[in-house]
Write a protein that binds this DNA or RNA. Structure first.
Lengths: 232, 232
DNA sequence: TTCACAATTTTGTTGCAACAAAAATGCAGC
DNA sequence: GCTGCATTTTTGTTGCAACAAAATTGTGAA
């Protein structure tokens, strides 16, 4: 009796339900910036977008809402959240705790192959930044982070972190083109890769935390400018 | 323009949807130990239990499942999770990170009234333990913890913590009557209250972390015994 | 232009039936 | 008793229509 008691023997690949597929696609659209902060979502519109009936569309919206990736602004109005300074601070504090933990744990499990994978992702980030394909850079940046987090061997933790990225994801698309000027995150990523190579947990954690804090500062600045610009 | 952009002016009390009510009731049943680890849940049974149609029942189950409070053991089988050692470790690590953060932040906002509230909760815990009303003791224990966490002023963090309690909640009911012998958590709670009074963030965090680790040890022990006893 | 308010359209929720698929059951055969 | 297999029952998902409620639009007055 060694396996997880909750896993059935043949739960290898359950056929994906329409609701799950809708959820997955919505998630990707949110991260990729297809839906921007403030965008309003309706059950019927999503159903049409994804070419399913209202039930799976509603499932997906409900799930995203209960995760905090979408928010109610009225009894019948769901939108992609517009983060204010308070939200941003809360999410960042939580990210530091969770992603810090994941990084720390990851340090114990890194292999040379993982480091290679990260280097390859970093090259993709770099060239995307250089060629001003910002959305793509963000996408690879996400992959870079999660490649590390998955090394923690703590899948539930990883999915909690994912739900946090879903909350800030849309706002990140408001950062470019400015954010590329300083080569977003490059230095921190380099240190992270070195730390992983050396299995230095504290250093890896510090590098990832720095990266999160960097992003936070940029978002906060952009938020202030934006807030000042649109309030008139 | 100061308020949260996502909140509509009159979002005071949206009328509760049946699905939300079902979710809330299910959550309480899970925490209170009505549904024990391994218990199988079906849409139609839940619908009947809560006296609603299948749609809200399905909503509630789906939501709980995506939170990790319920798990699939087969394509059509949802059960209250039976935690193994790996799950337990992962949840505990995450709890330490999140509840540690919440405690730290809470220390800055505690008032004498809050301390009184905690003392009152602790009295309830003590008498429940003494009179062997274990389920009640667990309930008040939960309130004790969340009264502190809510002081953090980080509502999203609190609800992430709640989802973790939902995952371990059912397993806690397998601990008694043994767990009362050592007056579960009393000492840590006392230190926590003192720390809050003195606004000592590090000390409050340490006390809460100790409490979490204590619980973890008990669960791990009970898990081993149970595992050994049922494998034959 | 701005505001208030009424008319109209849009929208989420809910209940339910049909269907395919999975789980439970029963039954041989050993 | 136990295993393997076929039958029966149970189950989740999906699509959809009806309904009440909310959001939007349009109108007119100041």
């Amino acid at each position: 009796m060694a396996g997880n008691l909750n896993e059935a023997p043949d739960l290898e690949r359950a056929p994906e339900r329409l609701g799950d597929a809708a959820y997955r696609q919505m998630k990707e659209r949110i991260i990729r910036g297809v839906y921007r902060p403030g965008h309003k979502l309706t059950v019927r519109a999503v159903a049409q977008d994804l070419d399913v009936s209202t039930t799976p569309a509603r499932d997906a919206i409900n799930r995203l809402t209960s995760e905090g990736a979408l928010v109610y602004t009225g009894p019948k109005t769901v939108v992609v959240p517009v983060l204010d300074a308070t939200d941003l601070r809360e999410i960042t504090l939580t990210r530091l705790a969770l992603e810090g933990l994941a990084s720390e744990q990851a340090a114990q499990h890194g292999t040379p192959a993982n480091v290679e994978e990260l280097k390859s992702l970093q090259r993709l980030i770099n060239s995307a930044l250089q060629e001003k394909r910002y959305a793509e850079a963000l996408w690879h940046n996400k992959e870079f982070h999660f490649t590390i987090y998955r090394l923690s061997g703590l899948p539930q933790l990883v999915s909690m972190i994912e739900s946090l990225w879903l909350r800030i994801g849309p706002s990140l698309h408001n950062l470019y083109p400015e954010f590329a000027e300083e080569k977003y995150g490059v230095r921190n990523h380099e240190i992270a890769m070195e730390s992983l190579e050396e299995r230095d947990a504290a250093s890896l954690r510090a590098a990832m935390e720095n990266d999160i804090r960097d992003g936070y500062r940029r978002l906060k600045r952009a938020n202030l400018e934006r807030g000042a610009g649109t309030s008139a």
